[in-house]
Design a protein around this nucleic acid. Structure first.
Lengths: 163, 163
DNA sequence: TGTGCAACTGTTATAATGTTGCACTTTTTT
DNA sequence: AAAAAAGTGCAACATTATAACAGTTGCACA
C-alpha cells in the first residue's frame, strides 16, 4: 500500500505485482475472505501489466496454463476481487485492472491512454469533493462513482505509437 | 435548448420529446447532417423516458412497429446521434439516453437512480475544472470524460420503489 | 438531365461480453 | 462427525456489439 510506479514509465513491474499480491493477502486476512488459488492467480494475471484486461483475456491465459476454466470461473473471481477492492472494472472498456490504492476508501479516477493502453489510477480530493457537492446539490445520494478519462498519456504525446 | 424538467418529477414528458426533436433538427441542419427517418425515430424512442434504453430495447420497439430492423440499424443510428451530441451512452449500463444539453460543449455528469432507473444529466463547472486539473497535473491530455454516479434520487429516498 | 460519388440502409452472419442453474467439493461452524 | 456455507466445474444460454457486402438513395456537378 505504498507509492506506486507510473504505468507508462519503465519500472520493475514484478515489484508492482508482488506488492499487489502481498497487499491482497493482507486485506483478505483482515476481512476473513478467502483468497483461493484461482482468485490469486486471476489477480496476478490482471496485474501483469498496467493495461486493463478483458475477462476473456484472463480466461485465455488460464486456459493456456492448463487451468480448466469457463467464463463463470473468471467472472466469479473478478467479482470477488472487485468486492474486496483489489481490482476495478473499467466500464468504458469492459475490462479490469488491478487496484493501485488498496485499502484506501476511494473514488478512483482512471486516466486511460488510447495510444498505449495504459491506465493510471489516481485519487484527487478536489475531484471527489466537487462530485459529492454536485450530487448533493441535486439531493442525490451518491453511492458509486465511475470516472474514466480517455486521452493521451505523457509518454505518448511526444513519442508516438508506443508499446 | 432551454431548461429541462427534472426526470424524477412529474412533468409533461411530451414536451421533453418534442423539444429534443426540434433541437435535433436544428443541430443537424446547422451541421448539414442528415436526420433521416430511422435516426429521428430512434432518437424519439430513446427520449420516451428519462431511463436509459438498451440498443436491443430500441430494436424491439422498432420491430414492434413494423420496421424491418436488425442490430446494425440501431447501432448505426445511435452512433450517428452520439456523434452529433444528441444522445449519450451510459457505459456502466450499456444503454443510451437523450442528451439534455444539446449544443453546449459539455462534460456531462450522470446521476443514475438505482431504484427508479431515471437519469439526470448535469454539467458542473467545478467538477469539470477539478477533473481537468487532476488530469493536467499528470500531464495527461484528456479527450473524453465518462462520469456516472449511481445512487438514489430524491424521489426514491423517501418514497421507496417508485415507478 | 443524367451520371457518378458518397452516404445511408438492409441482411446475414458472427464476435465479444456476461449470466443462470445445478451438481459436486471443500471449508468452516457447531 | 454432521450440518451449513462457501467455493468450483460445467453446460447452456442471454445480452451486447461488430463485420462484411450488396443494394439504394440523395446530392453535387458537368
Amino acid at each position: 500500500m505504498s507509492a506506486r510506479a507510473l504505468p507508462y514509465r519503465p519500472h520493475n513491474h514484478d515489484a508492482c505485482v508482488s506488492q499487489a499480491l502481498s497487499d491482497a493477502r493482507a486485506i483478505c486476512q483482515q476481512q476473513s475472505a478467502r483468497l483461493t488459488p484461482t482468485r490469486e492467480r486471476v489477480l496476478e494475471l490482471v496485474w501483469q501489466s498496467h493495461k486493463p484486461l478483458g475477462a476473456y483475456d484472463v480466461l485465455a491465459k488460464l486456459t493456456a496454463e492448463g487451468h480448466n476454466a469457463a467464463p463463470p470461473t473468471v467472472y466469479r473471481a473478478l467479482d470477488f476481487l472487485q468486492q474486496h477492492g483489489l481490482v476495478h472494472r473499467i466500464a468504458s472498456l469492459n475490462a479490469f485492472i488491478g487496484c493501485a490504492h488498496v485499502g484506501e476508501h476511494h473514488t478512483g479516477m482512471f486516466l486511460i491512454c488510447r495510444v498505449c493502453g495504459n491506465v493510471l489510477e489516481l485519487t484527487d480530493a478536489s475531484v471527489s469533493t466537487a462530485i459529492r457537492n454536485a450530487a448533493g446539490a441535486e439531493v442525490f445520494r451518491a453511492e458509486a462513482v465511475t470516472l474514466e478519462v480517455a486521452g493521451v498519456c505523457p509518454g505518448c504525446q511526444t513519442e508516438p505509437n508506443h508499446e
